[in-house]
Write a protein that binds this DNA or RNA. Sequence first.
DNA 1: TATAATGTTTGAAC
DNA 2: AGTTCAAACATTAT
Length: 243
Amino acid sequence: MPEGPSIVILKEAVKQFTGKKVIAVSGSSELDINRLKNLIVIDFKSWGKHFLICFENFTVKIHLLMFGTYRINERKDATPRLSLHFDNGELNFYTCSIKFLEGNINVHYDWSADVMNKNWDSKSAKKKLKTVPEQLICDTILDQNIFSGVGNIIKNEVLYKTHVHPESLTGKIPQTILNNIIKECSKYSFQFLEWKKNDELKDHWLAHTKRICLICNLPLIKKQTGLKKRRSFFCPNCQKLYL
DNA sequence: TATAATGTTTGAAC
DNA sequence: AGTTCAAACATTAT
């Protein structure tokens, strides 16, 4: 379900509750979620895959992990982890991780790391890349402190589009190529957003889950790569291995 | 039907 | 002490 763009869709979908008071709270969360009752939602934000419900003195951080879902003004046939009721509707979250972040939200996040944030800073990402030259690029791209919001699908597509082998060493990739990877991580996330909204995301996949390279017609390799051991789909012929 | 997958944290084991 | 790795949390498409 959730890479960064999916959380942006969620954020846009709940705008109707901004400025509204929470009139009822329920859910299976182990946290003291009753503290939300009668509080006013100041804002909804996101940082990569984190969905943030901001109140005056603290923020609720929701992470959908791999299988999390939500419903707006609807319910699933399951117990919500968190359910918020407003006078104009309800917001239900299922199978997610919930945490409280105390105080000013800006203290908790580096907004420049989020590839979809207006403060996204590619130069800052570039500096961070320089600190991990020995790391495989497939792991580096999934590092949420560098490319917050980028998930495994985006990783595979960006590496295919930039012709870089996922097992390349970050520090051995030429600067121009690295710049292109950084740019694509953000650019592809916004394309992902539009395609997802139109329910046509999979139609645009060039490498992810694919078997044949569109460029050379040879079979793509499917392999768990890097320390993160996430699956990569790549063409060893068209994607250069930098070592 | 069994498997694997858009993810992350935690804590045991080494 | 640093690393590596499995477990845990589930759900759903193939």
